[in-house]
Design a binder for these strands. Structure first.
Length: 823
DNA sequence: GGTCCCTAGATACC
DNA sequence: ACAGGTATCTAGGGACC
């Protein structure tokens, strides 16, 4: 039997005491295939230096005799080989110790208390990762495979609903072909948000040319996509039936790891019915990660369950305009579509027509989820191919896991044995180490400026890692001639320098490849700018930028605080040097943050600036590169609220095309009310466009009048804050905590991650705390004029007008008495 | 009950 | 626990008078 094949998902099982991998995928005819395979299972025992071959042979003999009795199961070392390997860049002799079952490696490793052995490695990769590395059958790449039909052989162990099942004999990588996975999105609606705490009212399903809402709630009219069942029990059964019938490669939800699938499972358990969604009729398995704070993941055998929210969260949230990651806002940003309007507040009072609306609302959620998956699929695909981990994991892993995955799958090229995961104790120690000094931020001189140029370093941290060959394995113990020397660093209380070998390490070498990808996608975006090419470009920017974070992350295998400190010291050094050079060239530098610098053109022109850039680049080492971010017509920098110091990380620019770029100002901070944000944004715009504050001041006066006359709509005064911890954990009782408590009383979502909305209302008595005046949107009350004038508008505009020596405090607060007389 | 200083908390920038 | 450090700013917490 021979066929082409593209692997989607990997799982493993035991058969006759041996590890098998089952890979689910398809061929170009669209047939679903299960490939059964196994691979060599082994780990490494790295030997101490200067052990003679006689001793090694004796050691091998001893190890070969190791037998274990684990929970009634017999296992033993199968074979031992001696290899020349690298470990952390150093040549070592290592024993490759083979076993039957991956699960046993840890136990066997623990039996190796021989003095000749320095350390044991390679038993903690996870079987799937180990398998992919070993057999090189990479996710989402095309292969030509051959083997025997194996449905019979594994029957009784693995009964899968696939077109055919093959035991792999040979494989060959073939050219990429186009393929479109079958996608089914789903969404449930319930009458209680606590998992399993209420009933599931309806479930929507959307696939290509397929739309369905299942419900047991009968109504007078009926849309064609609505299908009635008798009760909740039948609802769940019908859902399973449809999933099996459509038989998708990907079952996609939005926050479905945390809500939809656990809810379905909980209800199925309660009703004592199976939730046999797996291709082998198994129920979803839930894996808890961390210590309760986060949600687990939900895995379905043979069907790849994707919670698209997770991928968006790690890969894109930093670059999105949306203020929350709600399906509504995310869909608005990426699909230009949003959720249907439906008031979920009162389940009991839903009329028949409302139920129709509710069905449509539910259906539309699945439509949006489907659309989001389609939009992000190219990115998930690319990530999965590059990192070589299955989509299930790629779509859920954090950035450190992605970087680490990339490293682990590429070690073999360097003949490297993988470093182990840090132990719990080691993590504890790392977390308690003193933080290293970070980047340098130049304090700006507040003012309105004309003709500004911005330079920034492309992927600065990564290019430093590459250019200075910085990593755990290239770090030298002491100064060596002809090595890279870090600037002086304050490290663990002492001033010191670190040195890195000039022989390129495997990590810097791998980073060079990531940087290449990043550049390629940036070019692609420039050629064809749209949301998706932008997002992809940024996803790789993020992956590239995460490399530095990874080596300073306490959970990393290749953690090295010395390396991290060195990278940051170089970051400071290069930025300060560029500031100096640009100043020397006759420009006045306004601002700089980490990898960027802003300066005035003055009496020079753009050509001069470009020439300067070329000159600066010719002096930079390795792959380091300074880039022209852009020329701007005007820019504004303000003071901090307290004192006369220039505020860092707060500025606004207007490009030659009139486009405005605002950083750090209240305008871009979601926990300020829209009134203040929009006012500030308009004022910044007017000032940047006009070059003076006159029109802006008139605008301010108008808004003040509207506030005083209570002409401001409620949605403009709402303050939105995301709850970052559980309500009981707050030490300080802030306004948003009070608002969250009120929401909780009303049964509204008020746990970690939920958006808390409130406004500050006027009260008869004088109140000491803001929190005493907090009201949530449904509560009746008039907004507190003084609060909004003094605590929202004033702070948002005061510093801006101060640049023109205009004190607006009087304008905002002063006239209040007279205008209040009008009422 | 007011003032002062500090911390908690949220959210931004790179 | 699940990339890092730097920074701004509000409101609350607590000491003191």
């Amino acid at each position: 039997m021979k066929t082409d094949f593209i692997p989607f998902d990997y799982d493993y099982f035991d058969f006759c005491g041996k590890n098998y991998v089952k890979i689910i995928g398809r061929n170009s005819q669209g047939k679903r295939i299960c490939v059964m395979d196994s691979c060599d299972i082994y780990f490494w025992a790295i030997l101490k230096e200067k052990i003679n071959s006689k001793k090694i042979n004796k050691l091998i003999e001893k190890i070969e005799k190791i037998k274990l009795n684990l929970k009634g199961r017999q296992t033993r070392v199968e074979n031992v080989e001696l290899h020349e390997k690298n470990f952390l860049g150093k040549k070592v002799k290592a024993l490759k110790i083979f076993a039957t079952n991956y699960k046993d490696l840890h136990d066997i490793a623990n039996k190796l208390g021989f003095p000749e052995i320095e350390c044991r490695r390679g038993y903690d990769l996870g079987f799937i990762t180990h398998y992919i590395i070993e057999r090189k059958i990479n996710p989402l790449c095309w292969y030509e495979i051959s083997g025997e039909f194996a449905n019979e052989k594994f029957s009784g162990v693995e009964n899968l609903d696939v077109d055919f099942c093959i035991e792999l004999e040979s494989l060959k990588k073939i050219e990429d072909k186009k393929f479109s996975p079958k996608i089914l999105s789903y969404d449930i609606e319930t009458n209680d948000l606590r998992i399993g705490g209420g009933e599931i009212l309806m479930i929507s399903l959307v696939s290509e040319n397929f739309k369905k809402v299942l419900t047991w709630k009968k109504t007078k009219d009926k849309q064609s996509y609505v299908e009635y069942v008798d009760n909740e029990e039948k609802l769940i059964e019908k859902f399973v039936e449809y999933v099996k019938k459509i038989s998708p490669d990907f079952l996609v939800g939005y926050f479905s790891d945390g809500f939809d699938l656990p809810y379905l499972k909980a209800r199925a358990n309660k009703l004592k019915i199976p939730l046999n969604l797996g291709l082998d009729d198994s129920s979803p398995r839930f894996f808890r990660k961390g210590f309760g704070k986060d949600f687990g993941t939900a895995k379905i055998s043979g069907v790849i369950h994707i919670d698209i929210l997770k991928f968006i969260q790690t890969a894109y949230s930093q670059y999105m305009q949306s203020e929350t990651l709600s399906l509504n806002e995310v869909a608005k940003e990426f699909l230009g579509d949003q959720k249907k309007n439906f008031d979920l507040d009162s389940f009991n009072k839903i009329s028949s027509q409302s139920w129709e609306d509710y069905f449509e609302y539910c259906l539309h959620d699945s439509i949006l989820t489907f659309g989001l998956f389609e939009k992000f699929w190219p990115d998930i695909l690319e990530f999965s191919r590059i990192i070589k981990e299955p989509v299930f994991d790629i779509s859920r892993n954090g950035l450190s896991k992605q970087v680490e995955g990339y490293i682990l799958h590429n070690l073999e090229r360097f003949n490297e044995i993988p470093e182990k995961r840090p132990t719990h104790d080691e993590i504890g120690k790392r977390k308690h180490r003193k933080k290293v000094e970070g980047a340098f931020v130049l304090e700006p001189t507040p003012g309105l400026y004309e003709k500004i140029a911005f330079f920034d370093f492309t992927s600065m941290h990564t290019s430093i890692i590459i250019s200075m060959n910085i990593s755990k394995s290239t770090l030298l113990e002491k100064e060596e001639k002809d090595s890279y020397e870090s600037p002086e660093i304050e490290f663990e209380g002492k001033k010191t320098r670190f040195y890195f070998s000039k022989k390129q390490g495997f990590l810097p070498s791998l980073m060079e490849e990531i940087l290449e990808k990043r550049k390629r996608y940036k070019e692609e975006y420039k050629k064809n700018p749209n949301q998706i090419t932008f997002a992809r470009s940024n996803a790789f920017k993020l992956l590239s930028a995460s490399v530095h974070g990874y080596i300073g992350f306490f959970g990393a295998r290749y953690y090295s605080l010395e390396s991290s400190a060195s990278v940051l010291a170089f970051v400071r050094k290069f930025n300060k040097e560029i500031i100096e050079e640009v100043t020397k060239a006759g420009y006045s530098v306004i601002y700089g943050d980490t990898d960027s610098i802003a300066f005035l053109l003055g009496n020079k022109n753009e050509e001069d600036v470009k020439k300067l850039l070329t000159k600066l680049n010719s002096e930079l080492p390795g792959v380091m590169e300074l880039e022209l971010e852009g020329f701007f017509k005007r820019g504004i920098w303000v003071t901090k609220r307290t004192g006369t110091f220039g505020a860092k990380k707060k500025y606004a620019l207007i490009g030659k095309d009139g486009k405005i770029k605002i950083r750090g100002f209240e305008t871009v901070r979601r926990n300020w009310c829209r009134l203040a944000r929009e006012l500030q944004s308009n004022i910044i715009k007017l000032i940047l466009e006009e070059g003076n504050e006159k029109k802006a001041f008139e605008f301010l006066k108008e808004v003040i009048q509207r506030v005083k006359k209570r002409k401001i709509k409620q949605e403009e005064i709402i303050i939105k804050t995301v709850l970052q911890k559980n309500l009981s954990e707050y030490k300080a009782i802030t306004p948003h905590v009070i608002a969250a408590r009120k929401m909780k009383e009303k049964g509204l979502p008020s746990s970690i991650g939920n958006l808390i909305e409130y406004y500050i209302a006027e009260s008869k008595e004088k109140k000491k705390f803001v929190r005493e005046k907090v009201k949530i949107p449904g509560e009746s009350g008039e907004y507190d004029i003084s609060y909004y004038l003094e605590r929202q508008i004033l702070p948002a505009v005061e510093n801006i007008f101060q640049i023109f020596s205009k004190d607006v405090k009087e304008t905002i607060e002063g006239k209040r008495q007279t205008s209040l007389g009008d009422f």
